[in-house]
Simulated assay, not measured.
Amino acid sequence: MLEILTGAGLTTSAGLNAFIPMFALGLLDRFTNLVNLPEAWAWFSSDVSLWVVGVLLVLEVVADKIPGVDAMNDAVQTVVRPAAGGITFASGIGTETTTVRDPDALFAGGAWVPIAIGAAIALVVHLAKAGTRVGANTVTVGTAAPVLSTAEDVSAAALTLTALFLPVLVAVLVVAVVVGLWLLARRFRARRTRGRAAAAPGGSEWTA
């Protein structure tokens, strides 16, 4: 069960930022004894992978905070984040950590299954994130982009660390992320509706 929670936390994190969980897994496997990746995913911690993912992480963090650029980034990430989610879910359920000492073999014999599950979860989270960002940028003329992006990065990092070291809390954080995205989307959608009503002929700023 802990293995599934670890994988779910990592893939949800990837739906917010594709490279945070991948970079964290690689660094922790390479430089600590806290995480031991399964052999199939050991390439995460190679020099080339760490440098490539590290550079992509910096680009993602910067691009996601620039109004307009964040929309183009989200379009590209529609492919990248689900792929990262599939990879991190598959690696997460087989990773030995300080809390997971006997990685589950639940998906043994069907290597594609965890990848597909992780990709689906990450895609749903990504679409919710991207949709919320569009609404926020429309209502705030892009000023909300850096604030929301920073909150998403912090959430992704928190989910990654929790998934690896305290997976029993992953479900709580995943629910918090989903509810948070839903509330934000609802708030910005309501503000946009009021703005359109106020701009309509005969409308006013007091139009509900």
Score class of each variant (00 low, 15 high):
Met1Ala: 11
Ile4Ala: 13
Leu5Cys: 08
Leu5Gly: 07
Thr6Pro: 05
Gly9Met: 01
Leu10Ser: 02
Thr11Lys: 07
Ser13Tyr: 06
Ser13Trp: 00
Ala18Phe: 00
Pro21Leu: 09
Pro21Phe: 07
Pro21Val: 01
Phe23Thr: 07
Leu25Gly: 08
Leu28Trp: 04
Asp29Val: 06
Phe31Asp: 12
Leu34Val: 02
Leu34His: 02
Leu34Gln: 04
Asn36Arg: 07
Glu39Phe: 04
Glu39Pro: 01
Trp41Ile: 05
Ala42Gln: 05
Ala42Trp: 00
Trp43Phe: 14
Ser45Val: 11
Asp47Asn: 12
Val48Leu: 13
Val48Trp: 09
Ser49Ala: 14
Ser49Phe: 08
Ser49Ile: 00
Trp51Met: 11
Val52Ala: 15
Val53Cys: 07
Gly54Asp: 01
Gly54Ser: 04
Val55Leu: 14
Val58Arg: 02
Val58Lys: 00
Val58Gly: 07
Val58Glu: 00
Val61Phe: 04
Val61Gly: 14
Ala63Val: 12
Ala63Cys: 13
Lys65Val: 05
Lys65Asp: 09
Lys65Leu: 12
Asp70Cys: 01
Asp74Trp: 02
Ala75Glu: 01
Thr78Lys: 06
Thr78Ser: 11
Val79Ile: 14
Arg81Met: 10
Pro82Leu: 06
Ala83Ile: 11
Ala84Asn: 04
Ala84Thr: 00
Ala84His: 06
Ala84Ile: 01
Gly85Phe: 07
Gly86Asn: 01
Ile87Arg: 03
Ile87Gly: 04
Ile87Gln: 02
Thr88Gly: 09
Ala90Met: 09
Ile93Asp: 04
Gly94Gln: 02
Arg101Val: 14
Arg101Gln: 13
Ala105Gln: 08
Leu106Pro: 04
Phe107Ser: 05
Ala108Arg: 09
Gly109Tyr: 09
Trp112Met: 10
Val113Gly: 05
Pro114Gly: 03
Ile115Val: 15
Ile117Met: 06
Ile117Ser: 06
Gly118Asp: 07
Ala119Pro: 04
Ala119Lys: 04
Ala120Gln: 04
Ala120Cys: 00
Ala120Thr: 00
Ile121Thr: 10
Ala122Gln: 03
Val125Met: 02
Ala128Met: 14
Ala128Gly: 14
Lys129Pro: 09
Ala130Ile: 10
Gly131Lys: 01
Thr132Leu: 11
Arg133Cys: 10
Val134Leu: 15
Thr138Asp: 12
Thr140Asp: 08
Thr140Pro: 03
Gly142Ala: 02
Thr143Asn: 01
Ala145Ile: 11
Pro146Met: 08
Val147Trp: 15
Ser149Cys: 13
Ser149Phe: 15
Thr150Trp: 14
Thr150Ile: 15
Thr150Ser: 14
Val154Met: 15
Ala156Gln: 05
Ala157Tyr: 13
Leu161His: 03
Thr162Ala: 14
Thr162Leu: 07
Ala163Val: 03
Val170Glu: 01
Ala171Trp: 06
Val172Pro: 12
Val175Asp: 13
Ala176His: 11
Ala176Val: 13
Val177Phe: 06
Val177Trp: 03
Val177Cys: 03
Val179Leu: 12
Gly180Arg: 07
Leu183Asn: 14
Ala185Leu: 10
Arg186Asp: 15
Arg187Ile: 12
Arg187Ala: 15
Ala190Thr: 13
Arg192Val: 00
Arg192Ile: 08
Ala197His: 02
Ala200Val: 06
Thr207Arg: 09
Thr207His: 12
